[in-house]
Design a binder for these strands. Sequence first.
DNA 1: TTGAAAGCGCTACCAA
DNA 2: TTGGTAGCGCTTTCAA
Lengths: 312, 312
Amino acid sequence: MANIQEIADYTGFSKSTVSRVLNQKNYVAPRTRDLIEAAIVKLDYVPNAMAQGLSMGQMHNIGVVLPHNEHPYYTQLINGIMAAAFAANYRIMLLPSNYEAKVELAYLQQLRRKVFDSMIFTSHEISRQTLMTYQKYGPIVVCQDPGCLPIAAAYTARVPSYVAAFEWIKAQGYQHISLLATRASNVSATSKTTFQAYEQVFHQAPEPTLIRTGIRKQQDGYAAAAYFVTQKRPLDFIFANADDVAAGARQYYLEHDLPVPAMMGQENQLSSQLLNMATIDHHLYEVGENAAKLAISGAVRQFRVESEFIVR
Amino acid sequence: MANIQEIADYTGFSKSTVSRVLNQKNYVAPRTRDLIEAAIVKLDYVPNAMAQGLSMGQMHNIGVVLPHNEHPYYTQLINGIMAAAFAANYRIMLLPSNYEAKVELAYLQQLRRKVFDSMIFTSHEISRQTLMTYQKYGPIVVCQDPGCLPIAAAYTARVPSYVAAFEWIKAQGYQHISLLATRASNVSATSKTTFQAYEQVFHQAPEPTLIRTGIRKQQDGYAAAAYFVTQKRPLDFIFANADDVAAGARQYYLEHDLPVPAMMGQENQLSSQLLNMATIDHHLYEVGENAAKLAISGAVRQFRVESEFIVR
DNA sequence: TTGAAAGCGCTACCAA
DNA sequence: TTGGTAGCGCTTTCAA
């Protein structure tokens, strides 16, 4: 396969000149440029990206860490990231983490190894402190509020919509509210935020026996409902971490001919529309776009978008 | 950032020896190995992937072309590809094509440029002949039946389940069947297959006024229903290209207090479970896994899986 | 068992 | 306006 040297030999110019033509640099005589371009076409030459990458020190790749791809949350985020990356001529690499810190660390090593120039963590298990120590190897963007730490971030401000949602729930007169979360509040910022909003509205902490964690998808919601039923906890509302999860819980009650508690979900998925259920839209596409822009620019800035409580 | 030469200097051995340790090659004295490994840890050295890639001629990347990922077809396929790639220590790059041949060709050039070692086309606009001319630059896998051409492929045999589905629809006595498709049958193999199965069962071509194309997601199903209503076509069954699409159509009828036609979807998504609706499962995850395996092995083989009609 | 040196293919500095 | 050359960081022969 032809390389730059062959083009040089064929035209009688040097590699340097060919390189200048390739990169649209100045100081190339028009005639020289024509000759070289003709040779490039003639010999069907394309530059080797790995050699360019090695020489330039970057590959125009963005690594995107995601725990799993089973959930529309990540799909929407990925779509936004992809759109912005494509527009800027960057490629994205999908890095499944399964919420494992060890795997995330392996990806940070790949950043050091220059597999990609920058990273986006759509979710991260390892601490922000640890992430910070890797910033010197390339831009790192997270998709949660990094607090006051100097970490680039694109995320949704969830508090206002959570408060709005809980106020709506309270106004309806519900008292025994179950909270379904992806992970425990001591390891998940999102769960913590949820619980805090709850406290702000109800002036008390959520009932521990009505909290279920480790909830990701529909089946988990189903299982949570089964648990509540066997425990016979008083329960009149389920605040789920995703619409599909709420739908799963609902399914359990229906299948067992039990009265279905009121419920709401999150992410504005199809299931909440079908069930005419309240939800919260976190505007993930927009978040994704901005995450990609930050990863590309390398700016250590925060992009924040308000999520939206949708009553139905 | 430390490089291999620094490790060599630090230990007093040569780059060659360090390289041998790095790559678990033979002919390294145990003591030498220990010394070098200690230095690697001490200096926190990681090899540069671009340099390795340039030297070895490959980056362990697989490029995955997808027109969009609004449709669950692609999400599931990607999940399967990701799982198999991860297991084999390969990374996947997402390459959005938006069904544009020009964009697909640009990605084929990236294959030549060694951006990735192999490619998977989850859908392709350019001809299989053209694809074949690029096989010499790296393994290329398609996700449709390539016929008798020597192209690696992992795909679903859709005909049997389509025929089964149409026979079931016919047995129920439905006569005016709407077909919702992603693209027109003259550009899409999948649509063509669907229409052929329809003809095989009903002994006539599908009613042109009941075909809607450009349908990808729930909203499109909603819009299609709106169209049918204004056109006042007789219509008693909707055969949708995805469960979510069918759900969207259903939503339109419900919202407008209109009788809901019978319907079925595809992909066995959550919505068909919630609505207790018949569907077809194309086993895309498995197809994805096998596509990745073919891309990695470089074998020019075909993997074919039967899709499954699920009555509910 | 180890090391010197020649690639891999490109960019960019410095001279001419 | 052009070319020589020194990297970029690694792998892999071939000698020793």
